[in-house]
Nucleic acid binder design. Structure first.
Lengths: 234, 234
DNA sequence: CAGCCCCTCACTATTTCTGGGGAGTTGAAA
DNA sequence: TTTCAACTCCCCAGAAATAGTGAGGGGCTG
């Protein structure tokens, strides 16, 4: 069943079709909502066709990704997580949670973090209404299916978005990488130059050219971009 | 078969056991070599128990990850890749390839990129000797198995390495997060303060306190730490 | 209700970074 | 063989960040 779904997914050619496929997943996976949510650096992309449009808009307007415990937790985790295991005690979060429930997203949820090249980050979520026991059983039985589906949905989304699942990453030269790495480790220019056994002037040239390549406005920005594109190993 | 393997994997409690399980995979997956290769932030971690130890050492000594087309391609891709589809024409690469073949890694290979929190990056590879046709059939039939196995092996590795698959982070206040986020987006202090509708003085206080919490030596360092702890979503 | 953290604002001297220049060598690719 | 990218070094003036210390109000929590 899931196999044939994935076959079908592979043949999708537009974002609209992908949306339809995500809707179709609702039946395949036997849940109430299926959401693909790419928290991208360039721009947010949502495929939450089964949520109320008002809720999605409200979520975006309020920039709820910043407080949503699901997003926060998935950002720090490798493995999928059940919403029950998150901390909803904070006041803002409780408020958010209340609104979410009111919008009919369901009392149970399960989210899969997905990461791609250049710091791409997305969530694949299923949610619905069920007892804790039933939900626990369901998730336990379907983790692998959800992992696979999330992978292929994300791959398709990437493919449709940029024509391929491969990114043309900015390539920094070894020395540029070294320079930014030192700065990311907290060294100032003098210390960094010392560590790399070059003059501070030279170091500056690397920082400048890295900044240029990364179209960064300043050093901090350059380091941030390099980090979030996975260019630095610190 | 794979299901029971994954069950077994979940019970692994030491890196040695994990190594054994990776070896066991060779039979489960019916290939010659199985490699888990984490290009980690803190340090490289290898589980290549079926490769010749000399080759592994040589690879590390020569820092071959820098030119290995498999690593490079996986770094830019989301989906697994067959080694055949890579570009081996570069002079250094051809040399590297020759050495690899001589070390008995096999003429065919298939690698799965895996990404985790904080820029963690790993490869899960199977390789062996087969005709192009057979290998193509094999990989096509086993992509999903390989995806799942790579996920669970990596999860286990993360768990064993740091006790959990979750990055535990210091908690920044909302305003501190805002401040660092603005800086990470390339704004200077004046612009950031403007955006947040506070005085530059106030902004500085946030940056300072965030710097203290993150035990960072300067702003760039603070932003870097916050980013790599998944505190900022930009 | 006291303690703690968060939010907001202020001053000053010193250090560091930025953004313009320019120039020579090496090694690899076209 | 030329071309190009990477690596190395240098100057300077103006802009920005840092370290130090300060204060007052708001809100949650034990």
């Amino acid at each position: 069943m899931l196999d044939s779904y994935i076959e079908q997914l592979q043949r999708v050619e537009t974002l609209g079709e992908l949306n339809d496929q995500v809707v179709a997943l609702r039946d395949t996976l036997d849940v109430e909502h299926v959401v693909y949510h790419s928290v991208n650096s360039t721009g947010e992309q949502y495929a939450a066709p089964t949520y109320a449009p008002e809720w999605v808009q409200h979520y975006l307007d309020e920039d709820y990704a910043r407080i949503d415990p699901v997003v926060q937790a998935c950002y720090r985790r490798f493995h999928p997580i059940d919403w029950k295991r998150l901390d909803w005690t904070n006041k803002n979060v409780r408020n958010f949670h209340g609104e979410a429930i009111d919008s009919g997203i369901g009392n149970q949820g399960f989210s899969v973090p997905i990461r791609g090249p250049s710091g791409q980050f997305a969530l694949f979520t299923v949610s619905g209404n069920a007892s804790d026991d039933k939900w626990a059983t369901y998730t336990q039985e379907h983790v692998r299916d959800l992992l696979l589906v999330s992978h292929f949905v994300n791959q398709k989304a990437l493919e449709l978005e940029r024509g391929t699942d491969q990114v043309q990453a900015v390539s920094l030269s070894p020395r540029e990488t070294d320079a930014l790495t030192m700065l990311a480790m907290g060294y100032n220019r003098a210390q960094a130059a010392d560590s790399l056994l070059i003059s501070e002037h030279t170091l500056r040239v690397y920082i400048e050219s890295a900044r240029f390549k990364l179209t960064a406005m300043n050093t901090t920005h350059a380091v941030a971009r390099a980090l979030s594109q996975g260019l630095l190993i610190i």
